[in-house]
Amino acid sequence: MAKNIDLKAIDLNSLPQQSKPVQLGIAGAIIVIILILAYFFVYSGLNGQISQLREEEEKLKQTYTEKSRQAAHLDALKAELDSINGSFNILLKQLPTQAEIPNLIQELHECATKNGLNMDSVTPAQVQNTESDNQTDKKSEQQVIQTLPYNITLTGNYNQISQFLRDVGKLSRIVTLNSIVIKRNEKDNTLTLNAVANTYKALTDAEIKAQNNDKK
């Protein structure tokens, strides 16, 4: 029967003189200690790296899924963009050129005369650049559409003014009426319309370039 080995009583210097069971026991203990240390210093670190790599793998899978979904809708998005560009180009063609603006003012006069209204005044107001409602940086946004406002004053009855407003909407070029104020004239029971007639002009490449130079 093997005797119990007291490791504390063993002198490592005399290890070669010890019996085989003692030597094997000590060697086994050393191997166990080495394996335990190796686990804590090597395998535990590897487990951390493996966990990190798994997290990165999940993120990459999510990114891949999102990119795949976007790629699947790419053709539809391109078609939608082409449709938007087509609609935008149609609207641009409805904007008057600089040479057409005097004719447009003349058309407003004709609409008023046709409906029996007196065009009391048409005066240009301050020119404005059209800005986006979602603008976050006014200095960096490029303006491509310019608003050309005119203050107009008309006098007539209710039916004449109503028909005038409808006729303005049918003009060949885009004109909008804003800031409409209608007052009754007590002397002759007529109505006076004060409004801002806005038309819009697409800026030329030279005007856009000058605009960018001013911002710089």
Score class of each variant (00 low, 15 high):
residue 57 E to F: 09
residue 60 L to A: 14
residue 60 L to I: 15
residue 61 K to R: 15
residue 68 S to C: 02
residue 68 S to G: 07
residue 70 Q to C: 08
residue 71 A to R: 13
residue 76 A to T: 14
residue 78 K to A: 10
residue 78 K to L: 11
residue 81 L to W: 10
residue 82 D to A: 14
residue 83 S to G: 08
residue 83 S to A: 12
residue 90 I to A: 15
residue 90 I to R: 14
residue 94 Q to T: 07
residue 94 Q to N: 09
residue 95 L to M: 15
residue 96 P to G: 05
residue 99 A to W: 13
residue 103 N to L: 11
residue 103 N to E: 12
residue 104 L to S: 00
residue 105 I to C: 03
residue 105 I to L: 00
residue 106 Q to S: 15
residue 108 L to N: 02
residue 108 L to M: 07
residue 109 H to A: 09
residue 109 H to P: 01
residue 110 E to Q: 13
residue 111 C to P: 06
residue 113 T to R: 10
residue 115 N to Y: 03
residue 118 N to H: 11
residue 121 S to T: 07
residue 122 V to G: 00
residue 124 P to R: 08
residue 129 N to V: 08
residue 129 N to T: 11
residue 129 N to H: 09
residue 131 E to W: 13
residue 135 Q to D: 14
residue 137 D to S: 05
residue 141 E to T: 12
residue 141 E to F: 06
residue 143 Q to R: 13
residue 149 P to D: 01
residue 154 L to F: 07
residue 155 T to K: 04
residue 156 G to H: 02
residue 158 Y to F: 02
residue 160 Q to S: 05
residue 161 I to Y: 05
residue 162 S to C: 00
residue 162 S to H: 09
residue 163 Q to V: 08
residue 163 Q to K: 10
residue 166 R to M: 03
residue 166 R to I: 04
residue 169 G to P: 06
residue 169 G to L: 04
residue 170 K to E: 07
residue 170 K to P: 03
residue 170 K to L: 12
residue 171 L to E: 04
residue 173 R to Q: 04
residue 176 T to S: 07
residue 179 S to G: 06
residue 180 I to R: 05
residue 181 V to F: 02
residue 182 I to C: 02
residue 182 I to A: 01
residue 185 N to C: 05
residue 189 N to K: 03
residue 189 N to G: 00
residue 191 L to R: 01
residue 193 L to I: 07
residue 193 L to Q: 02
residue 194 N to G: 08
residue 194 N to T: 13
residue 195 A to P: 04
residue 197 A to P: 04
residue 198 N to D: 05
residue 198 N to P: 05
residue 199 T to M: 03
residue 199 T to C: 03
residue 201 K to R: 15
